[in-house]
Design a protein around this nucleic acid. Structure first.
Lengths: 145, 145
DNA sequence: ACTTCAAGTTGTACTATACAACCAAGTGGG
DNA sequence: CCCACTTGGTTGTATAGTACAACTTGAAGT
């Protein structure tokens, strides 16, 4: 395979993947959309942050995040704590239920990935993981993420 | 990196990518959504097919395809030809304009990918492409695509 | 204090999608 | 030959996710 051809293949396969991902994620976990899952994961990693940070980090409009967070709060997966120093700010935290659901969905996603990748040699897994990190780390001129 | 860790990284990075892809594809090409682009590409490859085939191939509801195709027809990018042997069937074909737009978007997407991948050694490109093909080729128990 | 800025919410609109109900055209058994 | 069934497609309706614009409230700077 030529390098140019490889680029085209990458383009094609990434496109295929992108088209499939949301729908299949939704089918796997009707209880937690890909976006909600991502936001919950971010909260877990950071141990709480502001809606604005989520919006900036994921290139979503603040209104979008506002509604997502409202839904997550209704579902009792996150809670908001008013920042005592700046009353405009609501710091978002996972609830116990949120942590539980997140862990559960993460497990089930992990199981799906494991199954999908179970026949791969360890060396290929490592390389593939590395390539993906490198691919995603690329910062576009006008950042997209 | 351990193999398990690699699987987690793959999961994480694929998730990140999936979340970003549609939005950025939309921003790159407001004139042709990712789905429309994919459908047009399919028509180009096959040189015409039925709406039902598109629906089956991309795991989309026939109503979804119907509306997408209707929009593409309104935009004069595809045309429908009634199958003379079976009047239920409409065979879809790219129009000249459709071919043109498709080529243009493909070029611009290709340029974006090339830019993103320009610093990669050829060997890495080849391997990455191979991994993606292999990843996407996996047929889930209850197929998703 | 008045202006300006920042964080969020709400109104509105649009796209992609699914499911169900439907129509129209073939197909096959009695 | 007719009626039931199947297949390809459209339309009605509902939902999720998203953006943009207008607004509210609180903070900060001159």
């Amino acid at each position: 395979m030529e390098a140019d051809e490889a680029v085209e293949t990458i383009q094609h396969e990434m496109t295929v993947f992108a088209r499939r991902a949301r729908a299949s994620a939704g089918r796997m976990h009707p209880e937690l959309s890909l976006v909600s899952y991502t936001l919950l994961g971010h909260l877990e990693e950071r141990g709480g942050c502001r809606a604005t940070d989520l919006a900036a980090h994921y290139a979503l409009d603040k209104s979008t995040v506002s509604r997502q967070v409202a839904a997550l709060e209704r579902a009792r997966l996150v809670e908001r704590r008013l920042d005592p120093d700046d009353h405009r700010v609501q710091v978002l935290h996972l609830t116990e239920a949120g942590r539980r659901i997140l862990a559960q969905v993460t497990d089930s996603r992990r199981a799906a990935f494991r199954e999908r990748l179970e026949d791969w040699p360890a060396e290929d897994l490592r390389r593939f993981a590395g390539y993906l990190v490198r691919y995603n780390a690329w910062a576009p001129p006008d950042d997209e993420a």
